[in-house]
Design a protein around this nucleic acid. Structure first.
Lengths: 364, 364
DNA sequence: CGCCAACGTGGAACCGGTTCCATTCTGCTC
DNA sequence: GAGCAGAATGGAACCGGTTCCACGTTGGCG
């Protein structure tokens, strides 16, 4: 203030004067006639001090339009008050909702979020290399990325508290969902409705997120085994994501000599396409074909799709909780499994075989 | 480093030794037997220097596992290499795609992105107050937020280069879309198909993003005026977003004594619900009712929805370009308008009146 | 009235980089 | 061989906060 005020006409030194230079804590100290330590103490709030001094400092801050530098604070404290979120660069319901969950959980804290996206095909190394790069963040949330050795090594190298979200690994804290169990539940549900020709349609796994489709397939086969149904290669379709993939899958399955009576689909968007193509081919859902989706996107409720609800927002929320706990010094690494829920709506019903036999049996 | 190195046995200073302390530039300098200035020069890459020295420094960095501190660099350079993106906390196609565009544009740079979400109802002040807070970022992208006086004041106070994305204001650089013109184009398209009973269904504006629905309404009325059609209050429906809102709107419009023959809908998700409800009520689309959506989400192509394509990803990409140009010292504030495109698919067709008259005329 | 604890305070040192200036070194010309 | 330009280099000062130590002041108690 002394400097600024001396070198300018007094009138020009208002709070929003056009001077380019940022006002620092030393300017404030000077203006308030105190030491920098005192200003810092006022800033950090908690510490006590003489009310009169405090008031003088606050007045000076307001008058100068002082805004403390987050960078300087980060450097001296050794904490950035920032969390890094690593997420695949794909417009997928899941990632968006997880982000929302993270944001919600962070709304009441003073943490900022830096997003680092990992493109699928390209520049994988660069993306991983930058992970937790030189103290930009205090901790990292890794979302929906398979814990490959490569990634684990990166995490170790970054020496930062890290939580896996929608993925799990014995060495790291995580918040995840059991996709195998969820799929198995869907199969059992269809099995209980009398279906014995059940197919699985899913997206291809890729290098980054291979785990989910594979896990679902594992759950699928496991449940078939429990039900004494033999797995059939032609009942396992891997196809593109989105409605188009669903259309293709429906075409392939319904062209079989003995088409399935029920299908579990690895994503709701695929399920939409599959439903449409099945209807176009004259199949009534659920009379001729039962369909169970995966994910429970907004559209699903609207079109009455029976599907597996994955608590995506919750994944983000809990991920933040675990990470913050770890930052606060919590020792035991939490491994949280969130439950899924089968949303029973209108696209899955009793197998015709069952209805027929029931009818033969005289109803009931 | 002096302290650390001196207080430990020489052997313990391996690359991955368990020492908690980060290795700093001074450690590297000592290990390489050079000064800190030299190490800094090697780091910044561009500057020349003796190849031998450079090699020694690089070896030392590798051997110590040195990772420069982004925070320290930011403090001394006065640039954070970080961009702040302010975005409404809503899962809306638009924001997600804009984010992807931003990420794509930034992939080749060394900029990081910090996301700040603005919740609709709550804590508005806090969200704005934190905008561009004390040098966390070098520049700000404000996405889909109406430039209220409150927001503008915040932007001015932050003294940071700022670009509006999907919004515009004379005082600030922006990358936007002309929603009024886009809507007017849709109306003209329907008008050319012979429709003269055209309705508008849209979402309610709120405090943050009021502009879009209002702009569309303006375009709607303007185009009606050009076509010498009188605006009718019962042909303008404001209802909830999502398919449910579309269902409601369809119910209201189709219950009118003289229902519209064509509807322009402010969002594709609403259009989905509207289509479904119209069909449920026995209307054939497009024979009995033409529907034009807005946004062109993935699902729209699949269901054949005629809709206005908004170049959302492009909005993000160009926003980044403008901001980076400004950071690089570009002077003139760019005001970029991106064109929309009417995607003609299967939900809009000639009005029955026109067809009938054509038939009377003997085809052609 | 004197002593000492507790409090309030100023300011140097520090966080880990960058930058710039002064110094040394190199290699070339005359 | 001396002189000098230019490059390479070392290191102090600095970015803007926090922290901690030392000091001065106050007030309570014996």
């Amino acid at each position: 203030m002394a400097r600024a005020a001396e070198s300018q006409p007094p009138g020009a030194a208002g709070p929003v004067a056009g001077d380019r230079a940022v006002t620092t804590i030393r300017d404030v100290a000077r203006a308030a006639g105190v030491g920098v330590g005192t200003v810092s103490r006022v800033l950090s709030g908690g510490a006590r001090g003489a009310p009169a001094t405090r008031a003088r400092v606050e007045a000076a801050m307001a008058q100068l339009g002082y805004r403390p530098s987050a960078t300087a604070r980060a450097l001296s404290q050794g904490r950035t008050h920032t969390l890094e979120v690593v997420v695949p660069l794909v417009t997928h319901h899941v990632y968006v909702e997880v982000l929302r969950g993270i944001e919600t959980a962070l709304a009441d804290t003073d943490y900022a979020v830096v997003i680092r996206t990992v493109e699928r095909a390209a520049a994988r190394d660069r993306a991983f290399a930058a992970l937790g790069q030189g103290g930009r963040a205090d901790g990292v949330l890794v979302v929906s990325l398979a814990p490959t050795p490569e990634l684990l090594e990166r995490i170790a190298a970054a020496r930062l508290p890290t939580v896996l979200v929608d993925a799990a690994h014995p060495d790291l804290p995580s918040v995840s969902v059991d996709h195998a169990a969820a799929t198995a539940e869907a199969i059992r549900f269809l099995r209980d409705l009398g279906h014995d020709r059940i197919a699985l349609v899913d997206e291809p796994g890729d290098h980054f997120a291979p785990a989910f489709a594979a896990e679902r397939r594992r759950g699928f086969r496991m449940a078939l085994g429990e039900a004494n149904l033999a797995p059939r290669a032609d009942y396992e379709i891997v196809t593109a994501g989105g409605p188009e993939g669903g259309v293709e899958a429906a075409a392939a399955l319904l062209a079989l000599p003995d088409p399935p009576t029920a299908v579990v689909v690895g994503s709701d968007t695929q399920a939409v396409g599959l439903l449409q193509e099945a209807r176009r081919r004259g199949r009534h859902v659920p009379r001729d074909l039962s369909v169970v989706g995966y994910g429970d996107i907004e559209m699903s409720r609207h079109i009455g799709l029976t599907t597996v609800r994955v608590p995506v927002r919750e994944l983000g929320r809990r991920g933040v909780e675990v990470l913050l706990a770890e930052l606060a010094g919590s020792t035991e690494p939490a491994q949280i499994r969130l439950p899924t829920e089968l949303m029973v709506r209108k696209t899955a019903g009793p197998s015709r075989g069952v209805e027929a036999s029931r009818r033969r049996d005289g109803g009931a």
